[in-house]
Structure formats: structure tokens, C-alpha cells
């Protein structure tokens, strides 16, 4: 196991509100990690900073074996270094078919001219079928993504991330709005993905996190409150205080 992503001492303030406060997190490769925390703990801002949507006020975000700094890079550049991100709300291209959605995400040259004269190699079709099977949408490939159910859209988005073939997957609340059955399937997809790469799951739902059965980081007010197995962190008195001692738990 090597360290893939190292966030150290990062802070970010929005108009006086400290969303992230001297946050340090280290993700290894491969690894499955869950990040939990109450509302406003800075989970989404953490993802924004890693993926380049938000620039941190201070601190470092280092990536890969060569410890390259990610701050200052654009979203696309960061994505192409191997970081995939799933949004809280399912964001797929509803007017396009499932196949088109996946094809767009596949790892291929990203420039406009390359896209203009792109001819799909045979291997791409194979890969698309593979991923569709993985996320359970093999028979939905010709359907427009807008016609899929909520859960299926979530899986399609995860499938798009897998098609990117990233080294690190950031997944924001994948189980929100899913039925129990769908959650179970989502857990399986994520666990399988985490065998070969790093997967970071931000989640509210403790049951879901328990099923992931992985190392857990608890965020609170923009910094790490506790880290370890789920049982370990839930036994931590400060965590109990944050989650149970306050009304918004």
C-alpha cells in the first residue's frame, strides 16, 4: 500500500465561515474509506478542494508517487490525473443513451480534435459492456439515461467514473434516496471497485457505512475528529458528543 492522496493542513473560509479548518487526510492505494460527519462538517468542501472546484486558502494537496501538488490545476486536469467524482445528486446526461454516457467517460484522448475525428475502437464496446454488467445496466444500454430510475442513474454515474479508470474515486452520498436492495448493490459495486483502486465514500447513513466495513474518518467543523474502524470511532466520546450531544445528529 502506498499513499495516493495526501491532504495536509488545508483551510478554506467562505465569507468568514471556516468550512475546512487545518484538515489533514491521507488515502492509500488501494483503499476503501468512508468519511462521515454532521451537516456542515466540510465533507463536500473537502471533495471540492481535491477535485479543483474550490481553491484552498492554505495547505497542500499532494497526489501520486511523485507527490505532485493538485492546487491550481483545473478540474479537467485533475480528472485526467486519475480522480473521478460522483456528485450528491445523480448527474448523468439525460438526453443521451446509457451507452453514450459511458462512451463519453471512457479513457480516450480528451481534446476537441481527437473527439471530432474519433472512431470507436472495438475494445471500447467490449469495455462498455463490461462496465454495464458491473453496474447492472447491461440491458439498458440503448435507453436514454433520463428514463432510468433514481438508483439506476446513481449506478450509471458510478459506472461513468469506473469508465474513466481513475486511481481515486470520490463518491458523495451514493445511497441517498435508494431502497434497501439498491443500497446493498451499491455497496457491492463500491467494494469491488476498491479492490484495485482507492475509493472515498462520503455518507450520512451509518448502516451503509457499517456495510462498507472499512476505515472511517469523522469530520467535524472542518477538521478530523477521529479515525479508525467504525466501532472504534463510534466508541470515541468526542464523536458521541458531536453526534448525540447535539440536536442535529
Amino acid at each position: 500500500m502506498i499513499s495516493l492522496l495526501e491532504v495536509s493542513g488545508v483551510s478554506k473560509t467562505f465569507d468568514g465561515f471556516r468550512a475546512i479548518n487545518n484538515l489533514s487526510i491521507q488515502i492509500n492505494e488501494p483503499e476503501l474509506r468512508a468519511i462521515i460527519g454532521p451537516n456542515g462538517a466540510g465533507k463536500t468542501t473537502f471533495m471540492d478542494i481535491v477535485t479543483g472546484k474550490t481553491q484552498p486558502d492554505s495547505g497542500q494537496v499532494l497526489w501520486g508517487e511523485r507527490n505532485e501538488s493538485l492546487t491550481g490545476l483545473s478540474e479537467a486536469e485533475i480528472a485526467n490525473r486519475g480522480i473521478g467524482r460522483k456528485f450528491q445528486k445523480p448527474t448523468v446526461f439525460e438526453n443521451q443513451t446509457v451507452r453514450q454516457n459511458l462512451a463519453m467517460a471512457l479513457k480516450n484522448p480528451r481534446g476537441p480534435l481527437a473527439a471530432l475525428f474519433f472512431k470507436e475502437p472495438r475494445t471500447d464496446a467490449v469495455r462498455i459492456n463490461e462496465i454495464a454488467g458491473e453496474i447492472g445496466l447491461a440491458d439498458q444500454l440503448p435507453r436514454p439515461a433520463g428514463e432510468l430510475s433514481h438508483g439506476q442513474k446513481q449506478w450509471l454515474e458510478i459506472g461513468m467514473l469506473l469508465a474513466q479508470d481513475p486511481r481515486l474515486l470520490l463518491v458523495d452520498e451514493p445511497a441517498a434516496g435508494m431502497t434497501a436492495e439498491e443500497r446493498e448493490k451499491t455497496t457491492d459495486i463500491l467494494k469491488r471497485a476498491a479492490r484495485t483502486r482507492s475509493v472515498v465514500v462520503v455518507e450520512h447513513d451509518m448502516e451503509f457505512v457499517r456495510r462498507l466495513n472499512c476505515k472511517v474518518t469523522v469530520l467535524h467543523e472542518g477538521h478530523v475528529l477521529a479515525e479508525g474502524s467504525l466501532d472504534h470511532v463510534t466508541a470515541d466520546p468526542t464523536v458521541i458528543d458531536v453526534y448525540l450531544g447535539r440536536s442535529d445528529a
Partner: peptide, 9 residues
């Protein structure tokens, strides 16, 4: 945003 995070400029 989705296109951006897929790595397209």
C-alpha cells in the same frame, strides 16, 4: 460540471 469532472477541457 459533469463534463469537466470527466476530464474534458
Amino acid at each position: 460540471a459533469r463534463v469537466r469532472f470527466l476530464g474534458y477541457r
